[in-house]
Design a protein around this nucleic acid. Structure first.
Length: 652
DNA sequence: AGCACGCCGACT
DNA sequence: GTCGGCGTGCTC
């Protein structure tokens, strides 16, 4: 009898910060345990069982102390391979959160039926004779070679325009993404394509289906049925290359020989994970870049603020990918100064005529921003801003005939009267999108109006005359692209009081422009100055640099790092005190009270002390959690490096 | 989270 | 004298 015993180090699948460390368990003789598998283990005197993943197995030759035994192997599939553990712990550390929380984002819910049939089909993980796709016959382009270089970080510009394949049309940018992925696959590596939302995924899928057989594709998106999601995850674990196509969770995919992570439109807010510990796709990709040497490529029509900064710093290489033919973009204020606004739709008559002419060729896209961004109401006699009598929030009208209501608390102000002049009439402030659109509809009575927004999603429209009114990010495509795109009310979006305003607006505009045909034209109303020039020229680098310099001057991210702490004021204060005591170069902003009853404090600190700050944040959160049970509403939330967290402080 | 251990008030 | 309150503290 040998005295040595086999030990498994296990990370528990628990939301409790106190339990987020490794626990040692004995592996009972005869039990087959390997790193990555899910096990059930006793916790606290065998009274209850917890589940977790085996991080590593060790042999202990000199037994010391008594250890509990693993109760059961939940599944023999190593769903958390060592690489994923490394990534999860680094991402957790960076975001002052728990590895178990990150693993919950990365590993889909187990689906027993799917797993059993997959296992039975002989998807043996150590199969030596694994297959690989046909190697490509064409040499890689220089750009693709740069993007695929091991360990590289690149930025790739995607083209404008839409292919002309009828129902099968896709934006050319997704065509390009698909080609890059197929090229990578042909060199024998796996690729993860991480898209902001399902529309992008569908388009890439469509473009990919013409290049690559289905068995090389695994779709891993958030709103997919759990069975197929788990199926796709299991496909990633097979020892053959695969193109993983999905939403932000796909960035963790433990694919075989992963050679490239392609982050599409990293400026899109959908890349910010809404669940703890709130990591951003961009940051996860870079963790994998440094931990696993995987090439990362940020692909979008225009680089984001973060990527622009990295290019300037030399941290990311800007890859020149050839032609960037952009449709003509005309800010009406620059080109049409002396135009009359007397056209039936309150548009410059040149634009009105252009719409009329374009409608002969096909549909016209009109992009509007969300109704919440629409200008509010003001008193028609004295012009002062109309605000809610209950909470002081701005009043707005959801439709032309609706009573005004508060956009913060939702209370309807049926009998509003102005506190200043006692007037009772309200008028819209600035340009009213709804009115412009309905006027446009009236001006072209024979043309159907198609509405596309979040609730009413439309993927594509036929190439027939129509006014397609879409909120940002919801525009349908049309084969060959729109002959005309109208971008309304840009200034309102750009001048929003948010650190995301510039980036989100650029993304919304450039995406809409990329839906136009190459010989099409885009008009932008209500926009002047540098943004109008930049939009007209299709060159945002001056504005983006200026924004970055301004933020550096003001000490705002990304020049500095931030962490926001939300929760009950007592808890938040304790955490703030602890961090301020531990790290001197931390400045606390706030506290500001939250709509949900708690408070927010934002810590601001230089990159050089980032590691100390997140270490202390984790430590003080653990100390707090050990203090006893707390109700779910006042649970502490720590979000690291989300610039939008500063919006909560604005106006205070 | 659970569930222990632990040190002060009213009951057979 | 004991039963039990739930205030800290730990979980391999």
């Amino acid at each position: 009898m040998s005295t040595s015993r086999r030990i498994a180090r296990v990370i528990l699948d628990s939301r409790l910060p106190q339990l987020n460390r490794l626990f040692d368990y004995l592996i009972p003789p005869g039990m087959v345990v390997e790193p990555g598998i899910r096990v059930r283990v006793p916790l606290r005197s065998a009274q209850r069982l917890a589940e977790g993943y085996v991080v590593e197995c060790t042999e202990e030759s000199t037994p010391s102390g008594s250890l509990a035994q693993i109760s059961e192997v939940v599944s023999p599939v190593p769903v958390m391979p060592p690489g994923l553990w490394k990534v999860a712990s680094q991402v957790a550390h960076r975001s002052a959160g728990s590895p178990a929380d990150v693993l919950r984002l990365a590993i889909p819910k187990r689906y027993v039926k799917v797993e059993k049939s997959w296992w039975a089909e002989g998807a043996v993980l150590d199969d030596e004779a694994h297959t690989a796709p046909e190697p490509g016959t064409q040499p890689l382009t220089e750009a693709h070679e740069m993007v695929l270089r091991a360990g590289s970080r690149t930025s790739l510009s995607l083209p404008y325009g839409v292919s002309s394949r009828g129902e099968q049309s896709v934006p050319l940018s997704w065509d390009k993404v698909a080609h890059l992925a197929a090229d990578a696959l042909s060199t024998g590596v796996s690729v993860a394509i991480v898209c902001p939302d399902w529309r992008d995924i569908q388009w890439v899928r469509l473009a990919l289906s013409e290049l690559v057989d289905d068995r090389w594709i695994a779709e891993l998106s958030g709103d997919q049925p759990p069975a197929s999601r788990y199926q796709a995850y299991l496909r990633c674990l097979e020892p053959s290359p695969v193109i993983v196509l999905g939403s932000r969770h796909a960035v963790y995919a433990p694919a075989h020989n992963l050679g490239l992570i392609l982050v599409v439109d990293d400026a899109d807010s959908a890349h910010r994970e809404p669940l703890a510990p709130y990591p951003h796709t961009r940051d996860v990709a870079l963790v994998r870049n440094s931990a696993e040497g995987i090439a990362v490529c940020f692909a979008s029509v225009t680089p984001s603020l973060a990527v622009s900064r990295w290019i300037d710093m030399g941290y990311v290489d800007d890859v020149f990918a050839g032609d960037v033919a952009r449709p003509r973009v005309i800010p009406t204020s620059l080109a049409l100064h002396h135009d009359s606004l007397a056209s039936p739709a309150r548009l410059p008559s040149t634009v009105y005529q252009a719409v009329k002419k374009a409608l002969e060729k096909g549909p016209v896209l009109i992009q509007v921003f969300r109704s919440g961004y629409a200008p509010g109401l003001s008193c028609s006699s004295c012009g002062s801003r109309a605000s809610c009598a209950h909470c002081g929030g701005p009043l707005r009208k959801t439709s032309a005939n609706a009573s005004p209501s508060c956009s913060w608390c939702g209370v309807t102000a049926a009998r509003w009267s102005c506190p200043g002049c006692a007037g009772v009439e309200l008028k819209p402030r600035g340009q009213a999108i709804g009115r412009t659109v309905s006027d446009l509809g009236k001006s072209f009575p024979s043309v159907p109006v198609i509405r596309a927004d979040g609730d009413n999603a439309i993927a594509s429209v036929p190439r027939t005359p129509a006014l397609v009114v879409a909120t940002r990010g919801a525009a349908p495509i049309v084969s060959g692209g729109y002959p005309l795109v109208l971008l309304l009310d840009g200034a309102a979006m750009l001048q929003r009081d948010s650190l995301g305003a510039l980036e989100e607006t650029i993304l919304a505009w450039e995406s809409a422009i990329s839906f136009a045909s190459h010989d099409g034209v885009c008009y932008v109303t209500d926009l002047e100055g540098p943004p109008a020039l930049a939009l007209g020229a299709g060159n945002w680098s001056t504005m983006v640099r200026h924004e970055l310099e301004q933020r550096a001057d003001l000490g705002l991210p990304p020049a500095l790092r931030i962490a926001s702490i939300m929760g009950s004021s007592g808890d938040v204060e304790k955490v703030r005190e602890s961090v301020e005591r531990a790290v001197t170069q931390v400045e606390a902003l706030g506290p500001v009270s939250n709509p949900d009853g708690g408070v927010v404090v934002v810590l601001r600190f230089p990159y050089s002390v980032g590691d100390q700050v997140v270490t202390d944040l984790s430590a003080s959160r653990q100390k707090l959690a050990a203090g006893g049970p707390r109700d779910r509403s006042s649970r502490l939330r720590i979000v690291v490096d989300d610039a939008l967290a500063l919006d909560a402080l604005a106006g205070e």
